[in-house]
């Protein structure tokens, strides 16, 4: 118990000592993040335009909610994800 409290104190002291130079400013960086998406701006989804029927999929009947027909489609699109056990996790 004593030991872990001391570990915390030591860590915070070193942090503060280090930060006197580095961490205090936001300029400090702990290495680049693995993924960063500069400049991506999401289009706002709320608007008051109405979708025309022009490109509407004919189907809005309830059958469309049972997409059995698409099993092969999804296989095709996902074929680049390989290896491992695809069904291991449930």
């Amino acid at each position: 118990m004593k030991n872990r409290n001391k570990l915390v104190s030591t860590a915070i002291s070193s942090l503060l000592a280090l930060s006197a130079t580095a961490v205090a400013t936001e300029a400090y960086s702990a290495g680049p993040p693995l993924e960063k998406c500069f400049g991506v701006v999401k289009a706002g989804k709320n608007d008051c335009g109405v979708k025309s029927l022009g490109t509407a999929c004919q189907g809005t009947s309830s059958k469309d909610a049972q997409p059995d027909a698409y099993i092969d489609v999804i296989k095709g699109n996902c074929e680049k994800i390989v290896g491992g056990s695809l069904t291991a996790k449930k």
Binding site: D47, C48, G49, V50, K51, S52, L53, G54
Partner: peptide, 13 residues
């Protein structure tokens, strides 16, 4: 949009 042979205007912006 032509619906049932009629012109219907859709406010698509």
């Amino acid at each position: 949009d032509i619906i049932g042979g009629q012109d219907i205007l859709i406010d698509t912006h």
